[in-house]
Nucleic acid binder design. Structure first.
Lengths: 120, 120
DNA sequence: TTTTCATTTGAATACTTGTTCAAGTATAAT
DNA sequence: ATTATACTTGAACAAGTATTCAAATGAAAA
């Protein structure tokens, strides 16, 4: 590598090396940036938003959630799986039915912060 | 429509009509659900997250942001447009250069809430 | 004016994502 | 056992999105 220093992680020139160096120093790690983005992306779909909102207050079975939203049971179930994987909802089986309810209070506070934002 | 009542907005049977009716009553409007999802989706990309984070503290020109992130100027500019359209960043032109800085304090509080969440 | 430079933009491409449809579980009723 | 019900899952499709490349803009320098 002729004339290449190891700090040259990209071809882009920088204009203010001091500011760039400072910003690089306190930079979010790739891992943190991805985890943060993933956290927000769970809340970035209208269907999931409406499911979570429907579950504030009381648990509902899949069929009722679908009924409230006006979506197919399958579509709702797919989204519930995402919410389950991210631990935003928990479920409880009772005979043939599955009742879902909110799990992560920390995310619901994010949810409410977001609501305040669009309503202000 | 034989035997169809106008409340039947979907084909799904509901098991607990009272709960469904209650949930429908306090349901988020379609518009609100979409706006909320849109708000979160701005924060649902690692590149945008890192841009916003790089801008906490001081303004940077496009070239420096690209340098900090290790992305192409074009990719950064495309993302800045999204952040601009959603009023999350503002910019100031100085001769040929464009300096970006954070705009919406309300979203940055969402951002920090999210950070707390992944770091706890 | 011509050239250079910082940034923006449009088109193309690869990737991701949400919904539907059909098939598959699992539990309860007949 | 057979049928019905509540839900889950995989594949396929459509729609959306992030990055790259090349071209365009607009301002300053030569």
């Amino acid at each position: 590598m002729p004339g290449k220093k190891e700090q040259d992680i990209c071809e882009v020139k920088s204009f203010n090396k001091i500011k760039v160096k400072a910003a690089r120093g306190k930079m979010l790690s790739d891992d943190e940036a991805h985890r943060l983005a993933e956290t927000f992306s769970v809340l970035s779909d209208p269907t999931r938003i409406r499911i979570l909102h429907a579950l504030t207050g009381e648990e509902l079975c899949v069929c009722d959630i679908a009924s409230v939203l006006g979506h197919s049971v399958s579509a709702v179930s797919h989204q519930l799986r995402i919410l389950r994987n991210m631990r935003l909802v928990k479920y409880r089986k009772e005979s043939k039915m599955v009742y879902y309810s909110l799990d992560d209070h920390h995310i619901t506070s994010l949810f409410n912060e977001g609501l305040k934002h669009i309503r202000e």
